[in-house]
Design a protein around this nucleic acid. Structure first.
Lengths: 211, 211
DNA sequence: CCACGTCTGGACATTGTGTCCGGAAATTAC
DNA sequence: GTAATTTCCGGACACAATGTCCAGACGTGG
């Protein structure tokens, strides 16, 4: 893959140029349930009301387009999550998950596309992986601290626990958002929070130190 | 997609025909780390020492090939799992997960390919979904029974819990197998078992009713 | 030897990708 | 207003991969 290049030169003077049109069109198509992989450059261009060649004036290829969409849209759900701390208790954690779920629902289409392409494209996979690394690192730090203070069992296998929480959690969340009943978002968030909480602390609901 | 058709006519008379050759070659390529999506019919045929047209004599397309590989190889890890019952306790559950992990490691390549294609192909996604449905149903039944007997908290949201366990667990498992240290399979299995156990029962390690 | 089924190798139509270019159109600079 | 610059259009091109089709080679069993 060549370098990034192709930075717009005088985009400033033209607010809604073809570029924005293409990004919007792609989102529209994705939201309508289109499958990113079998979405041709032609279709995207047509939907955007733009010549196919124009697409290539702005994007190296479909993957480039997807990444741009992602960075543009993905108001990191990480910010929401990382604000939480065990001292705030389980119920608060459930609230956090609820918020994350809202973010997921909002950007569901793009996230679906990301997951889809990540399965077979290394570039996107790495990008996505980097995104998840934030969570992994954060969780690891948090769990280690809890363990040091003796709140979490000493025999907890940190690496495995983090994997179960981050990878597993992400997957369950996506599955709920794509297949579950939106009316039960809160219930799901609570269940997820409680499962992690008790799973990791391995004891009854002693509100996490109520402190 | 057309119907299933294409059943071998006189396969019996020739044990190791092109068909087996192709299946084996594909596995070889996958195990060597090849990406199923960017694996051309030409490459597969060449690797199998067979003409490209021969490929189409046996498989409708690449997806067909993948499904055949899958059903042939996937000695359901379900059998292993479904043999377990809560009365056997957590540690036994960890053993079960260890066994499942062995199955996963063995068929890792094909499973990776399945996950990959499932991301963008409906046929494979459905197939894969059906596979997971077994687990979902089983877990649901089990949890409901536990809840009826009052061993599991009444406020447990069944549907969500199942999602967290099955989808999340599968993902974490795959992640561990592909990215984790094989030497720590047991540790991971145990962590997974303990997290589910305590997460679902929400109380300390009262060995699950000890029978 | 003949019939049958399989394998071969190549031709073919089709679809999608990414590149390139000449000219139209619009924007900016002068 | 005119010239220069940039973008967009639309179409041509080369290239790669799919899936279909067929004529002929090959080998086995009757």
């Amino acid at each position: 893959m060549p370098s990034i290049t192709r930075r717009r030169t005088a985009n400033v003077g033209r607010p809604t140029s073809a570029e924005a049109e293409i990004l919007a069109a792609t989102q529209r198509l994705l939201i309508n349930g289109a499958n990113f992989t079998e979405l041709g450059v032609q279709q995207i261009s047509t939907e955007a009301g733009v010549a196919r060649s124009t697409f290539y004036n702005h994007f190296r290829d479909k993957v480039d387009l997807l990444m741009r969409l992602a960075t543009e849209l993905m108001s990191s759900s990480f910010d929401v999550t990382s604000a939480w701390h065990p001292s705030e208790g389980v119920e608060h954690l459930a609230d956090v998950f609820s918020q994350v779920m809202r973010v997921y629902r909002k950007h569901a289409a793009v996230r679906r596309a990301l997951a889809e392409v990540a399965a077979y494209d290394a570039t996107v996979r790495d990008f996505w992986g980097r995104e998840l690394t934030q969570f992994t690192d954060w969780t690891l730090t948090l769990l280690r601290a809890e363990q040091d203070v003796g709140r979490t069992p000493a025999d907890l296998d940190l690496e495995s626990a983090v994997r179960v929480i981050v990878m597993g959690g992400e997957r369950a969340l996506v599955d709920h958002v794509t297949a579950g009943d939106p009316g039960r978002d809160a219930a799901f968030a609570r269940e997820l929070a409680l499962t992690w909480w008790h799973g990791v602390y391995r004891r009854p609901a002693d509100d996490g130190g109520a402190g």
